Amino acid sequence: MRLISIGIGCVLLSACAATPPKSDTPEPQPEIVLNLPAASTCACDPGGADDDPGVTFLEKGIDALTLGDHISAVQYFQRHQRIERTEAAAWETAVAIAFISTLPSSPFFEPQSSRASFERLSKQYRADMQVHSGVLLMRDSLEMFVSMLDHADDLRRQADGLQDDLDKREKALKRLRDLTLGSREESQ
Results as ranks from 00 to 15, higher is better:
50 D>P: 02
113 S>H: 09
114 S>C: 07
112 Q>W: 03
75 Q>L: 12
77 F>S: 02
71 I>M: 07
105 S>E: 15
73 A>N: 06
65 L>W: 02
91 W>H: 08
54 G>S: 12
111 P>W: 06
52 D>N: 13
74 V>C: 01
86 T>F: 14
53 P>G: 01
61 G>W: 03
90 A>I: 14
108 F>C: 09
80 H>G: 03
47 G>Y: 07
128 D>E: 14
99 F>P: 00
58 L>Y: 06
53 P>K: 05
100 I>G: 01
118 F>R: 04
70 H>I: 04
64 A>H: 02
126 R>Q: 13
120 R>N: 14
86 T>K: 13
78 Q>S: 07
119 E>P: 04
102 T>S: 14
71 I>Y: 05
129 M>W: 14
94 A>Q: 06
83 I>D: 08
117 S>Q: 11
103 L>G: 08
91 W>M: 09
46 P>D: 06
77 F>D: 01
77 F>C: 02
112 Q>S: 09
61 G>D: 05
64 A>Q: 01
53 P>E: 06
90 A>D: 10
65 L>S: 00
52 D>V: 11
113 S>C: 11
94 A>Y: 08
116 A>W: 09
68 G>Q: 00
84 E>W: 08
74 V>R: 03
100 I>H: 04
97 I>W: 00
60 K>R: 15
53 P>Y: 09
84 E>G: 05
81 Q>T: 07
57 F>C: 06
92 E>L: 09
128 D>C: 09
126 R>W: 12
60 K>G: 00
94 A>F: 09
100 I>E: 03
80 H>I: 07
81 Q>D: 08
112 Q>M: 13
119 E>W: 09
55 V>S: 10
123 K>T: 10
129 M>N: 08
63 D>F: 04
115 R>S: 13
102 T>K: 11
102 T>G: 08
71 I>W: 00
59 E>L: 06
75 Q>H: 11
111 P>H: 00
86 T>R: 15
101 S>V: 05
90 A>P: 15
58 L>R: 05
113 S>I: 11
58 L>S: 03
128 D>V: 15
81 Q>W: 05
127 A>L: 15
125 Y>E: 10
82 R>Y: 12
78 Q>L: 10
75 Q>F: 10
61 G>S: 00
74 V>E: 02
80 H>S: 03
46 P>R: 01
65 L>N: 01
73 A>W: 02
76 Y>N: 04
98 A>L: 09
118 F>D: 04
71 I>Q: 08
51 D>K: 15
56 T>E: 05
99 F>Y: 10
123 K>N: 08
53 P>S: 02
